[in-house]
Amino acid sequence: MMDIAIYSLVDDMVSKAGTEGVVEYWLRVGESYAERMGKEAYVGWPAFNVAMKEGRTSLTVEGEVNVLTDLAIIDRDGDVIGYVYALKTCPMAPTMRRYISRIGPIPDSDTDVADSYNNRIRDSAVSNYCITHQRFREIAANNITVAKQGLECLQLANKGMSGDVKMVPENLARINVDERHIKSILRSASCVFALIVRGKSAGEEIID
């Protein structure tokens, strides 16, 4: 029942703090959630990817993740700097279905808050919950080291309840993956992201 509260809470919050205020609240929730999960260290990518498959990392508390080991991201020297991962089911999907079945249509405030985030921060939210979820991943990734190197999470794409898709072209370019490839992954997933060594990219330059 706790999850169902989101919609009435967001509706109330929008009337009191505006859509921008709700975005700020959600960003802080994502940060505090990830911070309170603590730090993790793995000896190398194989160990980390097994932990992801088995759901042992802070990044897999959100649900089952497909580890796309065929999509290793390599830098210009040919070193593996990360991988692409696909979250099978959006954590918000059951709540949305439950809300629609028990209460009624999803309130407009859901889209209003997502639009506020998309217009001001990054065009990557298909629902208001994406704001906290994506922020959670970014901060949780910063708390993980693989072979003593810190990680960075890059949001690549996600799919909404009605099939609308958001892509983040600058992140796709950074890991040099084609948009069509990510779209094919989204057929059987709800969210696609990359985890790479912080500051690295598949291109020529290393990003600070």
Partner: peptide, 23 residues
């Protein structure tokens, strides 16, 4: 009886945190 759809606890926990942030 209506279909029983289980929530994802990831969402449940974040709602508790939302209220903590309000406090």
């Amino acid at each position: 009886m209506a279909e029983n759809i289980e929530s994802n606890p990831f969402v449940d926990v974040s709602v508790f945190l939302f209220f903590e942030d309000i406090s």
